[in-house]
Amino acid sequence: MRLSDRVTGSFVATLGALATYGGSQLPPVPGQDVGPSVFPMVIGVGLILCGLMIAFGIGHSFEDEAEADLAAVQGPSQEAQPSEPLSYRLRALLPPILLLFYVYAADRIGFVPVAAVMIFISALAFSAKLRVALPLALLAPIVIHLIFYKLLRVPLPPGLLPMPW
């Protein structure tokens, strides 16, 4: 998701404006001249300034220069992606969705099944073959559970499939 500096700059500036506004709404604290509102407002103003500078392309030359330096050492950058179809790019949402799935389901069906589903789906998304993805999804959660639950005493939810340890 490569956006123009104009877009990101405006976004940063808007966020700054929101922070300034949000900060100004905070109540003062008795006994403090500099209340909780000052710091967010200072940051907000800073963000507005930075956002505007980015939107107007100030300082962009540094980026090109830095990339040129990097390219000189490492060869041309691999970031130059051909325009992929939307369905391909939408896969970017898969990792966060799987994490939210964990949050939703871990207490209900337990750590091992949830982790297995996460690993299986993401391995397939990385175009792993079924004979790799399946054993990985079955074994890795058990190993992780063993390390975290037994050694580190992290209370992972047992759910439907409690481990024997």
Binding site: P40, G44, I58, D69
Partner: peptide, 30 residues
């Protein structure tokens, strides 16, 4: 290794994240 303006903007975003919560001198939720 990027534009200093963007680096400062990123750092300010981090500071804004650090504003969240009530662990601030005023002890008020922000």
């Amino acid at each position: 290794r990027s534009s200093p303006v963007k680096a400062i903007a990123s750092m300010l975003l981090g500071l804004l994240v650090a504003c969240i919560g009530m662990e601030n001198p005023g002890g008020v939720p922000r």
